[in-house]
Design a protein around this nucleic acid. Structure first.
Lengths: 246, 246
DNA sequence: GACCTCCTTAAACGCCGTTCAATACCCTTG
DNA sequence: CAAGGGTATTGAACGGCGTTTAAGGAGGTC
C-alpha cells in the first residue's frame, strides 16, 4: 500500500487564485473574433481585455495558433442535435441547420476550418452525433462516412458561398455608387446567363433566399441519399412522407 | 477632324521599360502561396523575388488584400469546362472535378474564398460556364442558380473536409509517436461509431479514398438534381445511362 | 540640355507574435 | 512565523509585418 503522500492518494491540488485560465482566454478570443474577424484578434488585445500583459497568455497557450484551435473547438460545441428525432431526414436536416447557424454566428470559424486540422473534443462529439444520425438511417461501413460527408460538406460549402455573396452585396452598397456599376456592367457583358440571374436576384431578400436555397439543396441530397439507403425498400418506419424537409 | 495630337489619334504610349507589372507580381504571389501558404507571402518577400523594394509594389496594387484578390481570380481562371460535352451530368461532373483539382493545387485559395467577395473576371466566367451547363440540363429561373449551387457548394465543402483530414493525418505522422495516441484513444473513447470508422480507415490510401468519396457524393446530388430537372420526363437526349459518373 | 511624368528607393511608423530575465505571489515546509 | 520553491505575471526586447512618404533617378518630350 502506498504511503500517504503518494500522488494517487492526495486529492488534486485546489486551483490557485489565478486571474486567468484557458476558458476565460478563449472566451475573450471568440468575442473579439465575433466582433471583427481575424483583424481584431491579437495576443495583446486579448491580454488587454483581461487586464494582463501579452506574455502571460503564453503560460496557458503555446502559440496564437493554439488559441485559435481552442476557439474553433469552442464554437463547434454550439452545434446541437435533437437526440429524440426518429425521422432520419429530419434529424440530418436539423443537425445541418444547427451547423449552418453556428457558422453564420461565427463567420471566422469557416476560415479556421479550411486552415486547421480539427481534433478537439467537440469536433469528435459532433462527428459522433452525425454518424449516429446516419447510422440510425441505415448506413454502415464505408457508406456511413460517405453519407455524413455528403451532408456536412454541403453545409460548409453553402455557407462559404452565402457569406461571399453577402460580402459582395455589402461592398456593393458602400462602394458602388457609379464607378463599380460600370465595371460590373462591362464584366457581365459577355455572360448572358449570369446577367439575367443577377438582374433577377436584385430585389429579393437575401437572407430568406439563402435559407430557401439551403433547404432546397438539403432536399436534393437527402433524396439522393435516400435512394442509396441500405434498407430503403423494406424499412419505411421513421420515414418522412414527401421530399420537403421543412 | 481632331488635331493630330488628340488622344484618340495617338497610339497608346508604348509601355515604358518597367521592371514590374501586375501579372508578374501576381505570378510571384501565387508561387509563394503555393510553396508555403499564407505564412510565406509578405509584400517584402514578393518584392525580394522580383529584385525590388516592398514599397514599389504599391504602385501597382493598393493593399496586400488587393493582391490576394488578384491571386484568387488568377487561379479561378484555371478551372476549365469541356464546352462540347452534351451529357449534362458529365459536363457538371467535369466542371466539379476541375474545380476540385484547382483547389487541391492551390490550397490557400480555399481560405481566400471564405474571406473575400469574389468579383474578378475569371470568377464571372466560371459562374457563366456553370450556369451554361445547368441551363443545357433544363434548369431555368431560380432553379438554375440553385442547381449550380448544389454542385459548387459540394466541391468547396468536400475539399475543405479533405484537406482538414489530410493535415490531421500529416500531423499524426510527425507528432503522434505515443503521447497523442493516448489522447486520441481517450478522446474517441465515448464515441463508438467514430472509433470504429477511424479504425476502418486506417489502412486505406487517403488520396484514392478522397476521390471515391467525391465521386460518390457527386452521384448522390446529381441524382437528386435529375429528379427535379424540369423536362426530366420527356427529354432523355444526352442522358447518361446509370448513376455512376465516372 | 531642361523639364515633366513615371517609377523606385530608403527610411520610418506602429503593430504584430514570441521570448526571456526578473519579480512578485502564494502555498508548503520546517 | 520564517524560509523556500514552484506558480504566475511583468516589462522589455527582437525581428518581421503592412503601409506611408519624402526624395531621387530614369525615360520620353521639347
Amino acid at each position: 500500500m502506498p504511503s500517504s503522500d503518494s500522488v494517487w492518494l492526495r486529492p488534486d491540488r485546489p486551483p490557485r487564485d489565478r486571474r486567468l485560465d484557458r476558458e476565460r482566454i478563449v472566451g475573450v478570443a471568440v468575442a473579439l473574433l465575433d466582433a471583427g474577424g481575424h483583424r481584431e484578434l491579437s495576443m495583446r488585445r486579448v491580454a488587454d481585455a483581461l487586464g494582463v500583459t501579452a506574455g502571460s497568455l503564453y503560460w496557458y497557450v503555446r502559440t496564437k495558433d493554439e488559441l485559435l484551435e481552442l476557439a474553433l473547438d469552442h464554437v463547434l460545441g454550439e452545434i446541437a442535435a435533437d437526440p429524440d428525432e426518429t425521422d432520419w431526414r429530419l434529424a440530418a436536416a436539423g443537425l445541418a441547420r444547427s451547423h449552418r447557424a453556428m457558422l453564420l454566428r461565427h463567420r471566422w470559424a469557416l476560415s479556421e476550418l479550411t486552415v486547421r486540422p480539427n481534433l478537439g473534443p467537440n469536433a469528435f462529439a459532433l462527428a459522433e452525433a452525425g454518424l449516429r444520425v446516419m447510422s440510425r438511417a441505415g448506413f454502415a461501413g464505408d457508406g456511413l462516412d460517405a453519407a455524413l460527408a455528403v451532408v456536412n460538406d454541403h453545409v460548409v460549402g453553402a455557407v462559404v458561398a452565402e457569406l461571399a455573396w453577402r460580402d459582395a452585396l455589402r461592398d456593393a452598397g458602400t462602394n458602388w455608387t457609379e464607378t463599380v456599376g460600370e465595371y460590373l456592367r462591362e464584366a457581365v457583358g459577355g455572360h448572358p446567363l449570369l446577367a439575367s440571374r443577377m438582374a433577377a436576384s436584385g430585389d429579393a431578400d437575401a437572407e430568406r433566399e439563402s435559407e430557401r436555397r439551403f433547404a432546397f439543396a438539403l432536399d436534393v441530397l437527402l433524396d439522393g441519399l435516400a435512394a442509396r439507403r441500405p434498407q430503403s425498400d423494406d424499412d419505411m418506419s421513421g420515414e418522412s412522407g414527401g421530399r420537403r424537409v421543412r
